[in-house]
Amino acid sequence: MLEITSTRSNHLIDPSLSIWGWEIPVYLFLGGMVAGMMIISGYFLFSGRYKETNCSCYYLPLMSFVLLSLGMLALFLDLEHKLYVWRLYTTFEISSAMSWGSWILILVYPILLTNMLMRPHPIVSERISSVENGIII
C-alpha cells in the first residue's frame, strides 16, 4: 500500500492540474485548421486552380486570416498577465516551443496577406482594373 497526503491546495494545481481552459483547445483547433487551409490554398495557387472563378482559393486566405485572429484572441484570453503579452516579442527563447509558436504566428500574417494579394478574387480584380481605367462602378 502506498498512501501520499499533501497539505498543498493551490488553485488550479490541486487536487488535479487544470491550468488551461477552453481557450487552448479552441486555439489548437483553429490553428490546425488554418495550417490545413494554408496548405490547400498553396496547392491551389501553384497548381493553377486559381484560374477557375469559383475556386475556394480566393476565400481561404481571408478565412485563414479571420480564424487565426480568433485563435490568437483565445490564446490572449488564456494569459493570466495579459498586459505583459508584448514581452513575447522582446526575446526569442530557442528552447521554448511557445516562443517559436508566437513568432511563427506573427510571420504567418504577412504570408496570408501576400497570399490574398497575389490572387485577389475576380470581382476585386475587375474592380481594381476598372478604377485604373477611370471607370467607376
Binding site: 488550479l12 494545481i13 492540474l17 491550468i19 488551461w20 488564456d78 494569459l79 493570466e80 498577465h81 495579459k82 505583459y84 503579452v85 514581452r87 513575447l88 521554448s96 516551443a97 511557445m98
Partner: peptide, 12 residues
C-alpha cells in the same frame, strides 16, 4: 514578475 505573461507553460 514583470516579464511573466502568465501562459502557465512552466506550471505544466
Amino acid at each position: 514578475h514583470s516579464e511573466c505573461i502568465g501562459c502557465k507553460a512552466c506550471i505544466a
